[in-house]
Amino acid sequence: MTHLEDTIYKCWESNSKAQSELYRLFSRKMYGVCLRYAKDSADAEDILQEGFVRVFTKIKQFEFKGSFEGWMRRIMVNTALEKFRKHDRLYPVEEMSIYESTEWVEETISSITADDLMKMIQELPPRYRMVFNLYAIEGYSHLEIGAMMNISEGTSKSNLSRARVILQKRVTDNFGEEKRIQVKAI
């Protein structure tokens, strides 16, 4: 039995030391996930706290099929989605079929830090932020995103397009050099 499995089994019995150990092992990664879905660090702390409470109370539901980190990550994402559904249900959606894409020179990309990008993503409107995270980083399809967020596949696509445009503009405004090309929306 691995150290992680042992810790998980101890968490079944609500062992506080094991819970602290699990928190120590995964809190950094999960906080990173939460920050992407939140509008600021306080919001991310709320999601992380609620997410870990759910992890500890539902840990018996983890059946050791697949990665524990993946299971925990899904809980964090679902917690963020639930929070979004509660507070940001209504948000105007602009339909877009064409967007601008950009290719930056290598120097531009290397000068952008993760914190810079995190700030940009947090400043996106809530629904765009959710869709962009789920599609671009988590790798969900528009069909899956539509089901998760209770929106249509088309709405998910248009939200993603809009999010890309906003992010592209911010990257360009902040980090300069680029060459623009026009492409059809995926």
């Binding site: 990173g32 920050l35 990309i109 980083i137």
Partner: peptide, 16 residues
């Protein structure tokens, strides 16, 4: 998409 790639590369394994 380059935007997706940029954010995935920089934030995919972001830890804090």
């Amino acid at each position: 998409h380059p935007i997706d790639q940029l954010f995935k590369d920089k934030l995919g394994n972001f830890e804090k």
